[in-house]
Write a protein that binds this DNA or RNA. Structure first.
Lengths: 330, 330
DNA sequence: CGACAAGTGTGAAACGTTACATGTTATTTT
DNA sequence: AAAATAACATGTAACGTTTCACACTTGTCG
């Protein structure tokens, strides 16, 4: 017995419409076909509920309508949001998304890239940390937040402007002594420009600047020790803190609360990312908002148009904005 | 000029090893091959850096090593974590993951299912809300948190036990008057058993029980109004609150803080899901922890072994646990 | 009126793999 | 020692598309 559930093929459509295989293919792919034939084919397609087999298509045409997305971990709200918007933008363009979570593991990043290249995806969008990633010439790649090579487009929000904006806001909110906190890799990636932007803004506004920077693998308890050192007469030396991400802000907020500091009464805090609550409504802290949806859309359009215009800029910066979220007095 | 970058094919390997195409195929697929030949083939594969073309394989073998995952929105921490662990579990089994974010849209759920079925994925893992989902007979499906049909396995954590555990913990922490808060669809899905479990636990521990339940689309401000009604002489009627998810807990906590209530001094709160902080270390609130990693692994193993043993139970419940996270006095 | 071009349908040959029927050895049985 | 039987390599026919050379129809022009 023949498989009942097997989908109809182009051959079936051709037979039903009384035309040849090639004609059906042309109709499916929008090649010029006489109206009378085209109609017969379209009717047959509808009647049989025919859909092209992407594996046959991919084999023949080297075109798979599939894009691989490399992201560290979807469990992090910002990366999760980025993934969601990438999925949406790809869907809108008729592309499927192969998700590859790298878990911040530089080896897994490379393994995934090798894997998806053999799988002949149409392109890769990656937020990676491997400083010496090897990407095949034949697979279009768009990078997020990290400049990998001159010929690989990088999409990021304007991190320098964001850092600058945080300083301006803290100054406008009455802060005098501010502090920058960061943890993360020391790569020369875009988010690390937040610090320079913040320093620039502090200098312009005449704010007193301090900082504490930890690296991957450092014990975050060092932030607690640092903050303790800066308490005098029960008061914190800083009246404003800029955290490199909202995630870090949560942790620092917890530490400060345990130290008896009130937020925003005693210290005002600004984070970076723009993470929102469960209902996607309010921001969970005062924050510099990255335009996640715009970043995702830009990645997708850059990737899909890459071959079209070969004058793609190597860095595309998208504007950030400020949103109050309870950790500042506005 | 021929495409330089095109990958080597089985034919190239066969030529390099001096054997036939079929022999290479056997080696690749683990069929019995003479050791001498096998070695020649393995060497050639390594030398040419050959990898099978999954599109040719999928076309011929109807086996694609790809699983589609339907999830509402990866931007939500719990769904994001589930996605991450699913990705990991699938990778470990050699499967690729096609991500399909449905945005809680029942129509998109159905569209995605239709799409991935035509794309001949090997199976689907879905956390869906459409009460009348149509799933083709030929595509294995494993459902999360929702019983769709008797022949479709459902993986969920033990929601009833979790609700019960929340009541036990609140009682042990000294609560007398507790309240259950929920918002969401009214589907007969597994998470909705949290309420019954909590009621059961309250009755067993002699706690006074109240509840406020909102439905999809309701204005969450109603929770604020409800809580305001239950303030007498500046004190809240409840000394313990069980929120149906951690996400809801965050919002309620924010409301209570704005009302001047201190947590956990005035009210103790327990959520459900087990969302952790940015560094995957601490819990962000006291919570009933769903074993996200175990759920993901169970989904994958159930899906991949489904045809093997056709005696798969229709509901697989995984144990939950309690974790303090600052919103209770422990 | 014959030739030529433009437009468009047709059939066959790929794409890289797997499966199955054949061949070819090497090994065992009587 | 001849025959039967393993064991395993080979070649070929699919799988469902796309593409390309070719054929056929029309219409146009000298």
């Amino acid at each position: 017995m023949k498989k009942k559930s097997s989908s109809p093929t182009m051959k079936d459509v051709a037979a039903a419409a009384g035309v040849s295989l090639g004609t059906v293919s042309k109709v499916v792919n929008g090649a010029p076909v006489g109206e009378e034939y085209a109609k017969r084919v379209r009717d047959a397609i509808k009647k049989l509920d025919y859909h092209v087999n992407i594996y046959a298509q991919g084999l023949k045409a080297d075109r798979t309508y599939t894009v691989a997305v490399l992201i560290p971990n979807t469990a992090h709200p910002y990366f999760g949001a980025l993934t969601y918007y990438l999925n949406l933008a790809l869907l809108k363009q008729g592309y499927r998304m192969l998700l590859c979570c790298t878990g911040f593991d530089v080896n897994r990043e490379q393994e995934y890239i090798n894997m998806v290249q053999q799988n002949k995806v149409d392109g890769i969008i990656g937020l990676t940390y491997n400083p010496s990633l090897e990407i095949g010439e034949n697979t279009p790649f768009v990078s997020i937040d990290r400049i990998i090579a001159p010929n690989i487009p990088c999409v990021a929000s304007d991190n320098f402007a964001g850092g600058n904006l945080a300083a301006e806001k803290l100054a406008a909110l009455g802060c005098k002594n501010v502090c920058f906190l960061r943890i993360g890799s020391d790569l020369n990636n875009e988010p690390n420009k937040r610090r320079a932007g913040f320093q620039n803004g502090c200098a312009a506004a005449g704010l007193s600047y301090s900082e504490k920077i930890l690296h991957d693998g450092d014990d975050t308890a060092q932030f607690g020790a640092f903050l303790q050192e800066h308490v005098h007469n029960g008061k914190l030396d800083f009246d404003g803190i800029f955290c490199v991400t909202d995630g870090l802000l949560y942790d620092i907020r917890k530490l400060l609360c345990e130290m008896g500091m009130r937020i925003p009464q005693d210290v005002q805090m600004i984070g970076f990312d723009g993470i929102r609550d469960f209902f996607d409504k309010d921001y969970t802290c005062s924050t510099i908002v990255q335009p996640a949806e715009a970043i995702a859309q830009t990645c997708v359009s850059t990737l899909l148009n890459r071959s079209a215009e070969n004058s793609t800029p190597s860095l595309i910066c998208l504007p950030v904005s400020y949103a109050p979220g309870g950790t500042t007095r506005d």
